[in-house]
Amino acid sequence: MWQDLMNEVRDQQALFDIAVRDWIAGYALKQGTIHCGKGCHACCSLAVNCTFTEALAVSTSLADRHAAALADHAAKIRSAAFAAPDFPSFLRARRALGGCPFLDSDGACGVYNRRPFSCRSLLSTKESRWCGADFSTLSREEKQGFVESLDQSVAAFPMHYVKATQDLGQDFESCAAGRMAETFGFGLYGNLPVLVFLEREHRLSETAPKGADAVREQVARAGCNHPFLITFSP
């Protein structure tokens, strides 16, 4: 069952990548620039959420060099979630942890071909320094200058990422979540490193056929039962 779901996600990701390339080409014809490139990883300190099927695909292709850092990174994310008084505070704490555990030493994504829709859809219309900027530390003038520099015809205002690809990514993501729900009776969504850790250490994919309650119990035993980390649907 899981292999079929992962194959479907892989096919959907291929279609999504074609759509993204077409969008970038069309934007370039309008003299627009996307500043993303290999080794550009400022956005990789952001919290990344995805469906469990996408996380499972990452888990099955994870190199040893990434697996070694995963447990420690997931533990830090878990601690940040339980310590945070609200979601914005958790996002700031997540960013303070540094880059994704799946980055290689040269800053390239070590799971690039398996990265989830949320990563694939994030296209920057501004230089990479803005992807890693802490806007809470900027002056009022700097914030105003940033907002005024945005191409509001394409950006997900007030941020500088492309809205069209994010919307499309959410559509594909919803489809993947729906297929899991059709297969097992529930959907599972959450923080990418935490989901990958739960699969590698606790084999959630083997528990899923037993139902949502069994998976909830396993997530709780692993200490990851927090809404900033894991959510179930419906």
Rank of each mutant, 00 (worst) to 15 (best):
F146D: 04
A164S: 13
I77Y: 04
D104V: 02
I18R: 15
V111R: 06
F232K: 10
K76G: 07
R115C: 13
V196T: 12
A177L: 15
Q144T: 09
A75K: 06
Y189K: 14
R179M: 13
A42K: 14
G190W: 06
G187K: 13
K126V: 08
S153C: 05
G110E: 09
E206W: 10
N49F: 04
R203K: 13
T207K: 05
N49H: 12
G223H: 12
E148R: 10
H160P: 07
V162M: 01
D213S: 13
T53M: 05
F197K: 11
Q152T: 11
I18S: 15
S139W: 03
S153R: 11
V147H: 06
M180A: 07
G145Y: 02
T60E: 14
A96G: 05
N113K: 12
R216D: 00
A67L: 12
P158K: 05
R95Q: 00
A177I: 09
W130S: 15
S153E: 13
K30W: 09
G211E: 07
G110P: 10
S124R: 03
R179G: 03
V196G: 07
H41G: 11
T165Q: 05
T51V: 14
H66E: 07
A181V: 05
C40Y: 15
E182H: 02
G39W: 08
H73S: 10
T60N: 07
L204A: 08
S128V: 04
F186C: 14
S233V: 02
D11I: 05
A42V: 04
T137Y: 11
A177N: 14
Q13I: 07
G185D: 10
A208P: 09
L29F: 11
E148T: 11
E127I: 10
S61V: 13
E8Y: 10
C119S: 09
L62Q: 01
Y27D: 08
T183N: 03
S118D: 06
K210Y: 00
D104Y: 00
T165G: 02
F82N: 13
T207E: 12
D17I: 00
A208F: 10
L150Y: 00
D134Q: 07
L29M: 15
H226W: 09
S89W: 02
A68H: 14
R115V: 00
L5V: 02
Y27A: 11
S205T: 12
K38S: 11
Y161E: 03
H160L: 01
F90T: 05
G223W: 01
R179I: 06
L103S: 08
V20W: 12
L195W: 00
C44T: 11
G107E: 00
D72Y: 10
Y27K: 12
G211A: 02
A176F: 00
E148W: 02
E182Y: 01
A69M: 02
S205D: 09
M159W: 08
L195K: 07
W130F: 15
L192C: 14
C36R: 14
H226N: 13
K126P: 11
A63W: 01
L91E: 02
A93Y: 03
L5S: 10
R120W: 02
G185K: 00
H226E: 14
F87H: 01
E8P: 03
S205W: 03
T125D: 12
T207Q: 05
T231N: 10
L56N: 08
R21T: 04
Q166M: 06
